[in-house]
Write a protein that binds this DNA or RNA. Structure first.
Length: 947
DNA sequence: GCTCTGCTCAGAGGA
């Protein structure tokens, strides 16, 4: 029987005498939370009787959240009626119990139940595992690093692993290993895998021939070993298996599984007879993961590919680089205790010092880095400190942002936990899974991968899109057979590619920590590697300076011209505030063109792929107009032209920008030249944090839609350049973050407030009729937003070919109208509004407006689909968030609120700003006037619309 | 309570 609970009070540790002598034990007071056992009627709560209805299985998530969000202090008592009891942990589990603090979650497997003074208590048995914060998923590599040195784990997280040859070679050997297991020809595999990493190898200055030879040497050992195995036994193999354990809170990807046991491949040196301890620990992690999926695992294999040549000539007759070893229960429990140390430290927000383990600093490669980081951040560490600590305000900044990023990471972990905490239907309702699939076929591809096809048997929306990496499973993403797969096509049929032939009938969103990791590294780089002058300016110790050019860049718009001058002349940074329709993109393009003319190398970045492609498109148009840019093919040949490169995944980059996309695969020299010769590189900020771009240097980083970026997100781009320019509008949508924390304010907004002189606001808009523009200008831009030209101010639907406002009913002739609809009272949809909107669109169509010229905006996705099902496909119907950045001749806004304006979505007025500034010639607001009047901003909006 | 885009994933190794 397993028990799960929240620690209710301090843990008591004491020594007792038993028949075996003195032993330690820890008594943990807990409030029990339902486990799956309990839900099935066999657990402690069901047995207890009275408590069982107080905790449905779904409650567990809520309790976990409360524990995580409120931290270990547990200042909010769990007032509900969960049973208070004691779990006694014996022997080595005392170490894990000592990590616990009130409020933390605890899972103990295989407990013994006993009665003590009329109360049911639990005790660990010889088969028990104690798991601290089980919903905190720890990576296998994290455990491997931690066992070497806890500080190493921390440093790795903070500064990442830079591009280096041994690592890249190791990765290629692993890929070849996987290919061999899947039956691919060795030479073909080596050639293909080396080719795939062309860009990386180019950056490292390696030639494909030398790398292939190097890989061949390692692969020979693998092949020899495989051959041996095939001759003697009937092996069952599986390569690259992704494993997640809901019990142990561990996840990882095993290199291979052979007859149910893990095989770990190591391409580094190991001259000793025994496997390295950390390698054993890594294999033991996979053993634990496999155990949860079924069988007992008691052996593991470590394959040291560099060892073959050495071992072959030894008298021992050891012909194989493989080292088999047995894994006892003791090792597996040790691994769980390591994992508990990590989870407890992360939940408490502590920083490891290195004293936790017994590693020797003098043998460590990271000793210097460790000492520098300790010195700069003023952290206690076993290696000691070098250098001077950062100023207090920077240390405070580091702590605050570190905590905020880690909170984001917790949210990602919660997404993982939902993989098993939510049932299939819940996940489907949450748009996080497709569960209606019917497996059709699997087809082997030439590269040793598989193409999987499944039919969709029901409709329904989901977050999944083509190009996404997903968990493809034959039933359950954690408990069943699951594999990471790439969505190649998604319509009524789903086409996937994956390493293994899973009989897929369900797809789940795969949560990734990648962006969180990169945020942390970006912050680290800014504070610890960044130049002093930039920090002086950003921390308010120095004023930003400018060397403004006298040149006129844009003749007919003073603010735009000033913006370009500031962007070009910034010594530190410049800010361009661009309200809706003010020609922000044009200004960016003009500024980059001017920078390029001065010989600067420019990084063009933004949070979303869409924004990057939009800005790049505008730049290419300008370059073409001025005869400096040509087709991408020619750019690579001719040094005189401006070379532009778009870095990003094939599915992320918009189709018309694909010709500019930098391929990763190919000849190393060619790929390198393509990147390094590019005078303009365009990529999302997440990609700026990639290993390939991190080594690049730019004179200027220009970041568009900067108000949508967190501070560390902005730094990911800014740290690659000498100066930076941020372009955005903090009166529109803020950064997307999962947790409420210090990441919600963008660097752009902060700098606009602290350094107003470094910025320019573009004040002439080229989009909206004056009547439409009025409200947003008054409400969000101090009345400073004005039409750029009289034609803009006066534009109406009449200007459009074939449209006549006279054909509209009198109430709709004004560019802004309000249509009062009482609504149907439901929460996230409103059929009454949807009906009315469908009629309105028809009325406009009758007056000559084409459906392609209309757009409908609603706050909720549910309402978006309600409306979409009632109007012609040509009408663009979407949420506010997805409409940002585009515009339409006619916009209809559905407010979807009856009675009162409840909900966070209405509280953020920036959304309303976005919605109201999308139309060019006509805006219709549809909603319940009683609800809208209940909020002063919305009430003013009604007054304006109803005029 | 709601909106939501990123990213090949995680792990690859140095003595």
């Amino acid at each position: 029987m397993d028990v799960r609970g929240i620690v209710a009070d301090e843990v008591t540790v004491r020594t007792v005498s038993t028949s075996y002598g003195e032993t330690d034990l820890a008594e943990v007071p807990v409030r029990l939370v339902a486990t799956d056992d309990a839900a099935a009627g066999t657990g402690p709560l069901a047995d207890g009787g009275t408590e069982s209805d107080a905790s449905a299985p779904g409650d567990r998530g809520a309790d976990t959240r409360a524990a995580g969000a409120d931290g270990p202090i547990g200042d909010e008592p769990l007032e509900d009626a969960h049973e208070l009891t004691t779990i006694t942990c014996w022997n080595k589990w005392v170490e894990s119990a000592e990590l616990l603090e009130p409020g933390m979650e605890l899972l103990v497997t295989n407990v013994e139940e006993d009665e003590y003074q009329g109360e049911t208590q639990y005790t660990t048995t010889g088969d028990s595992y104690v798991v601290v914060e089980p919903s905190f998923l720890v990576n296998v590599t994290a455990i491997r690093n931690w066992v070497e040195c806890p500080r190493l784990y921390y440093l790795n997280k903070l500064s990442g692993v830079p591009l280096n040859y041994p690592v890249v070679k190791g990765t290629i050997v692993h890929e070849v290993f996987g290919d061999l297991l899947r039956g691919r020809d060795l030479e073909e595999s080596i050639d293909a895998r080396v080719e795939e990493r062309g860009l990386q190898l180019g950056l490292l200055g390696e030639t494909p021939e030398a790398v292939a030879e190097d890989v061949r040497e390692n692969a020979a050992a693998i092949e020899g070993w495989l051959e041996q195995g095939r001759l003697t036994e009937d092996d069952s193999w599986r390569s690259e298996q992704l494993l997640i354990s809901e019990t142990f809170g561990i996840r990882g990807r095993a290199d291979a599984i052979r007859r149910g046991a893990p095989v770990e491949l190591k391409t580094g040196k190991n001259l000793r007879k025994e496997p390295r301890f950390k390698d054993k620990v890594q294999a033991a992690c996979y053993a634990l993961l496999l155990e949860e999926h079924g069988d007992e695992v008691d052996t593991g294999t470590l394959l040291y590919t560099k060892n073959s040549a050495l071992d072959r000539n030894e008298e021992t007759g050891d012909l194989t680089p493989a080292k088999d070893f047995s894994m006892g229960a003791g090792l597996l429990k040790f691994v769980v205790r390591l994992r508990n140390e990590i989870a407890a430290m992360e939940v408490k927000g502590d920083v490891p010092t290195g004293y936790e383990g017994d590693a020797k600093c003098e043998y460590c490669f990271e000793q210097d880095t460790c000492m520098v980081v300790s010195g700069r951040l003023d952290q206690e560490s076993k290696a000691g400190q070098i250098g001077q600590a950062l100023p207090d305000e920077e240390l405070e900044y580091f702590d605050r942002l570190y905590r905020a990023i880690e909170e984001e990471r917790r949210e990602v972990h919660r997404e993982y936990a939902k993989l098993w905490q939510q049932d299939a239907q819940e996940r489907a309702d949450d748009d996080r899974a497709l569960i209606d699939l019917e497996f059709v076929e699997k087809r082997p591809l030439e590269e040793g991968r598989w193409e999987l096809r499944a039919k969709r048997t029901a409709g329904g929306a989901s977050k999944l899109r083509e190009g996404d990496l997903v968990l493809a499973s034959d039933g359950h993403p954690v408990r069943g057979n699951a594999e990471l797969a790439m969505i190649e096509r998604l319509d009524d049929e789903v086409v996937l590619t994956a390493d293994e032939p899973v009989e897929v009938c369900r797809l789940d969103v795969y949560p990734s920590e990648l962006t969180t990791d990169r945020l942390l590294v970006a912050m680290h780089d800014f504070l610890l590697k960044g130049d002093g002058r930039r920090k002086d300016v950003l921390f308010g110790r120095e004023e930003p300076s400018f060397s403004l050019p006298e040149e006129t860049f844009i003749g007919n718009n003073a603010a735009q011209n000033e913006a370009v001058r500031k962007a070009v002349g910034a010594d530190d940074f410049a800010l361009i505030h661009g309200p809706p329709g003010t020609g922000k993109t044009y200004t960016i393009a003009r500024a980059i063109r001017a920078m390029v003319e001065r010989g600067d190398r420019v990084l063009l970045s933004a949070f979303t792929n869409r924004a990057v492609d939009n800005a790049l498109e505008a730049l290419l148009e300008q370059l073409e107009e001025h005869g400096e840019g040509v087709a991408p093919e020619a750019q690579r040949e001719d040094g005189e032209t401006v070379e532009v490169v778009r870095v990003g995944s094939e599915s992320g980059v918009r189709e018309d920008m694909l010709p500019y996309r930098l391929e990763r695969a190919g000849d190393p020299e060619d790929r390198l030249a393509e990147l390094e010769n590019a005078q303009v590189v365009a990529a999302t900020t997440a990609t700026c944090g990639s290993r390939e771009l991190k080594e690049q240097y730019f004179d200027v980083a220009l970041v568009d839609e900067a108000a949508q970026l967190t501070e560390p997100g902005t730094f990911a781009a800014a740290t690659l350049a000498d100066r930076f320019v941020l372009v955005g509008d903090h009166e529109q949508l803020p950064p997307v973050v999962r947790a409420e924390n210090d990441l919600t304010e963008s660097l752009f907004e902060r700098l606009v407030e602290t350094h107003p002189d470094a910025g320019v606001m573009l004040d002439r808009q080229y989009r909206m009729n004056q009547r439409i523009q009025y409200f947003a200008s008054q409400e969000f831009y101090d009345g400073k937003l004005r039409p750029a030209e009289p034609e803009v101010a006066a534009r109406t639907l009449d200007d459009l070919v074939g449209v006549s406002r006279d054909a509209l009913p009198p109430t709709l002739r004004d560019p802004v109208t309000f249509v009062d609809v009482e609504g149907d009272g439901s929460r996230y949809t409103d059929a009454a509004e949807a009906e009315r909107i469908a009629e309105l669109l028809e009325t406009y169509a009758d007056a000559g407006l084409r459906y392609e010229q209309m757009g409908v905006i609603a706050p909720f996705r549910a309402q978006v689909s309600t409306i979409a099902s009632r109007v012609p496909d040509a009408v663009a119907v979407d949420t506010v968030d997805r409409f940002q950045g585009s515009s339409q001749e006619l916009i209809v806004v559905s407010f979807t609120a009856t009675g009162s304006l409840e909900g966070p979505i209405f509280e953020d007025y920036r959304r309303i700003n976005v919605a109201l500034t999308r139309p060019k010639r006509a805006l219709v607001l549809v909603g319940d006037s009683r609800a809208l009047e209940s909020d002063p901003v919305y009430a003013r909006m009604l007054e304006w619309a109803d005029r």
